[in-house]
């Protein structure tokens, strides 16, 4: 288990989910999905949205909750597999929009669906070492699946922003983390291609399940804890079934994962997926509650975290829109609009 010498925690958090949805049955209408759909619906970014714009809004919400001026951020880190530019950081633009520039470290992180949690783990080290007072770690994606591919039902959009700061200022203290990584080619996208390739059932065992279990079991072991010690748990959610299954395998109950399970309604928000679930739990958690988080990124790796909610949370969460507010404003689009907005029409 990794843990900085100086205790750290989350001092502010914020989410963003686009207002648009496409129903899985609408995708199935086009592609003959007679074998059932992995989610009910997924979020769709509007035509003027991308990883940068979603990161900015989630981060503004996190700053409002942390109640710090943006110049106190020592780093602004954006984890995503859908940065709008191949070369030109998302982080500089996000930091500029927040007012955190110019005395700030920025970087873009990439590790499939756990790019955001990579940034979170690094933020723990940066703050825990005393190098920084506050670090902003963002997971955001506007994921794409090849038309007709199973991934198209789930590849979604969203952003979650976490500000890591001293534990004494936190809404939730991070008690420790593990990171488990192997070279596992379950899912990848080559440079200059639009859509990823995945290994079908290979993405389950050994990739997702094996990796998530490894990270989670190690953290439980190192903490001397068992699943029932936690009030809530959240796992990376590429669909509805995977997080439910891995939770059961590990010994967590459906009740523990319910508040953080957003994938049935918004699909897989990739780098934001597990972190959005964490934020949704923070929206309802009470002081003293404990939260078990495990992210997953193809390639493959998993980061697990244990958090304890402090007395500061109830007042601070009211300072920005709750996840439920973003989930509530759902406007469904049909497949044609979705195809137009997501650049799947050949225009020239």
């Amino acid at each position: 288990m990794m843990k900085p010498e100086r205790p750290v925690g989350i001092t502010g958090y914020g989410v963003y989910i686009p207002r648009f949805r496409i129903a899985a049955r609408e995708i199935a209408r086009i592609w003959d999905g007679t074998s059932g759909t992995p989610v009910d619906s997924k979020s769709v970014p509007g035509p003027d949205e991308d990883t940068i714009t979603m990161s900015i809004e989630a981060a503004r919400n996190a700053l409002a909750r942390a109640h710090i001026t943006p110049d106190r951020l020592s780093a602004v880190w954006v984890g995503s597999e859908s940065h709008p530019y191949s070369v030109k950081p998302s982080g500089t633009l996000v930091a500029e929009a927040l007012g955190a520039t110019p005395w700030v470290s920025t970087a873009d992180w990439e590790f499939a669906c756990k790019a955001g949690s990579e940034a979170l783990t690094a933020a723990m080290g940066m703050v825990g070492s005393g190098m920084a007072e506050y670090v902003l770690a963002i997971g955001a994606d506007t994921a794409q699946g090849r038309p007709g591919d199973a991934l198209e039902y789930t590849a979604a959009a969203g952003a979650a922003a976490l500000i890591v700061g001293p534990a004494m200022d936190a809404v939730a203290v991070i008690e420790g983390t593990t990171s488990y990584v192997t070279d596992t080619p379950d899912f990848f996208r080559r440079a200059d291609t639009a859509y990823p390739v995945h290994g079908h059932r290979f993405t389950g065992e050994p990739a997702y399940f094996g990796t998530v279990r490894s990270a989670a079991e190690k953290l439980l072991r190192d903490l001397g804890a068992k699943p029932s010690d936690f009030t809530y748990a959240v796992f990376h959610q590429p669909n509805t079934r995977f997080p439910q299954t891995v939770a059961r395998q590990l010994g967590f109950t459906p009740q523990q994962i319910a508040p953080g399970l957003l994938s049935p309604k918004i699909g897989n928000a990739y780098s934001a997926a597990a972190l959005l679930g964490l934020c949704a739990i923070l929206d309802v958690a009470q002081p003293g509650d404990t939260i078990f988080v495990t992210t997953y990124g193809s390639g493959a790796g998993s980061d697990a975290y244990a958090l304890r909610v402090t007395d500061a949370l109830p007042e601070r969460r009211e300072r920005a829109p709750l996840t439920a507010a973003y989930l509530a404003r759902e406007t469904f689009v049909d497949y044609a609009v979705y195809v137009k907005w997501r650049g799947k029409l050949v225009m020239e």
């Binding site: 509007g46 035509p47 003027d48 949205e49 991308d50 940068i52 714009t53 900015i56 809004e57 709008p84 530019y85 633009l93 929009a97």
Partner: peptide
């Protein structure tokens, strides 16, 4: 909100 105002194409900026 901060959004994309326009896209100046593959050899241009995205204006936010």
């Amino acid at each position: 909100v901060t959004r994309r105002l326009r896209d100046l194409g593959p050899t241009g900026l995205i204006v936010y």
